[in-house]
C-alpha cells in the first residue's frame, strides 16, 4: 500500500520533471519548427514547382523534376561549371587549413614572452570571418605570396599537371594568405584542445627519456585527434556555406523553384562530402592507431 503510494508519487515527480524540461526546451523546439522544418519542407516543395509571387499570394504550378533534370543533365553552366573547380579547391584547402591551424595552435601554446601579441594577431581572422572583406582582398590580389611568383611556380604547375587540376591549384597559390585567414576559429579550437592534455604527461614522458619530437607524435597528436575531427567538420561546413561561394550566389529570388532545386542538390553534395571526410578520417585514424 505504502510502496504503491510512493511509486505513484515518484511517477508524478517524474512526469513533472519531464514537463519542466519540455517547457524549457519548448521555445527552441518551436523555433526549430518555425525556422527550420517549415522552410526546409517548403523549399523542397518549391523545388518541384514553379513559384511566382503575385499580389494576392503565391502562384504555384507543378513542374515535377524538370528543374532537377535541367540542372543535373541539361545545362552544365548552372551547377557543374562552378561546382567542380570549387570541390577541387575545397579538397586542397581543407587539409591546408587544418594543418596550418594545428601548427599555429601548438606554437602559440608554448610559454614565451609576447605570446599575447601573437595570439591577438592570429585570432584576428575570427572577427573578419565574413565574406565581404576577404573577398575584397581576393579581388585586389592581396593574397599572393611573393616567393611563389619569384620562382614561377605557376608555370611549373601548369606544365606538370593536367589543366583541370592546375587551374584550381594556381588559384589557391595566388590566394594562399587568404586561405590562412579562414583558420581563425580552427586555431581557437585547437588551442583550447591542446590545453586539455595535461602537462604532467609530458613531464613523465621526458623523465622516461622521450624527445620533444617523439612526444609530439606520441602524445600531442593522438590527444588532438578529436579536435582534428571537429575542425574538419567545422571547416567543411564553413567553406560550403560561405555566402560568397559561387553556387550559393546563384540562389536568388528571380526563380524560386529552380533556386530551391539547386540548393537541394547542393545540400546533398555537402552531406556526401561530409560523409566522405568522416570516412577518410576514420580510415586514417584506424591505420594510425594500428601503427602506434
Amino acid at each position: 500500500m505504502i510502496g504503491k503510494l510512493i511509486g505513484k508519487r515518484k511517477l508524478k515527480i517524474n512526469t513533472w520533471r519531464k514537463l519542466e524540461g519540455a517547457l524549457f526546451l519548448s521555445p527552441w523546439i518551436f523555433g526549430f519548427f518555425a525556422f527550420m522544418v517549415f522552410p526546409i519542407g517548403f523549399s523542397l516543395y518549391m523545388s518541384f514547382n514553379q513559384v511566382r509571387i503575385v499580389p494576392d499570394g503565391l502562384d504555384i504550378q507543378y513542374r515535377g523534376v524538370t528543374y532537377y533534370k535541367q540542372i543535373l543533365f541539361e545545362n552544365g553552366s548552372i551547377l557543374y561549371n562552378n561546382l567542380i573547380p570549387f570541390l577541387q579547391e575545397a579538397l586542397i584547402m581543407i587539409p591546408i587549413i587544418v594543418i596550418f591551424a594545428l601548427l599555429v595552435a601548438i606554437m602559440l601554446n608554448y610559454n614565451f614572452s609576447g605570446r599575447w601579441l601573437f595570439r591577438t594577431i592570429f585570432f584576428l581572422p575570427v572577427i573578419f570571418s565574413t565574406g565581404a572583406i576577404i573577398q575584397e582582398f581576393y579581388d585586389q590580389g592581396e593574397g599572393t605570396l611573393g616567393f611563389l611568383e619569384q620562382y614561377n611556380l605557376a608555370d611549373y604547375v601548369s606544365m606538370v599537371l593536367p589543366s583541370s587540376w592546375s587551374g584550381p591549384i594556381i588559384r589557391i597559390m595566388n590566394s594562399f594568405v587568404l586561405i590562412l585567414w579562414y583558420s581563425g576559429v580552427q586555431i581557437l579550437l585547437f588551442l583550447a584542445g591542446r590545453q586539455t592534455i595535461s602537462a604532467t604527461v609530458y613531464e613523465a614522458a621526458r623523465i622516461d627519456g622521450a624527445s620533444p619530437w617523439e612526444s609530439f607524435w606520441k602524445i600531442t597528436l593522438p590527444g588532438m585527434i578529436p579536435f582534428i575531427f571537429l575542425n574538419l567538420i567545422y571547416t567543411v561546413v564553413d567553406l560550403f556555406t560561405f555566402p560568397r561561394n559561387p553556387i550559393m550566389q546563384k540562389v536568388t529570388t528571380s526563380d524560386y523553384g529552380k533556386s530551391s532545386a539547386l540548393v537541394w542538390i547542393y545540400f546533398v553534395i555537402i552531406l556526401l562530402f561530409l560523409g566522405l571526410v568522416m570516412l577518410v578520417f576514420r580510415r586514417v585514424n584506424k591505420t594510425y592507431q594500428q601503427t602506434r
Binding site: R17, I29, P39, I40
Partner: peptide
C-alpha cells in the same frame, strides 16, 4: 529531462549543417 532528448539533439546538429541558403527563399 526532456522527452525524446536525443532526437532533439540530433535536430540541433542538423541545424548546424543546414546552409542558410536552404531556408532563405521560404
Amino acid at each position: 529531462q526532456v522527452p525524446f532528448k536525443n532526437f532533439w539533439f540530433f535536430c540541433l546538429l542538423v541545424t548546424f549543417i543546414v546552409p542558410p541558403q536552404v531556408t532563405i527563399l521560404p
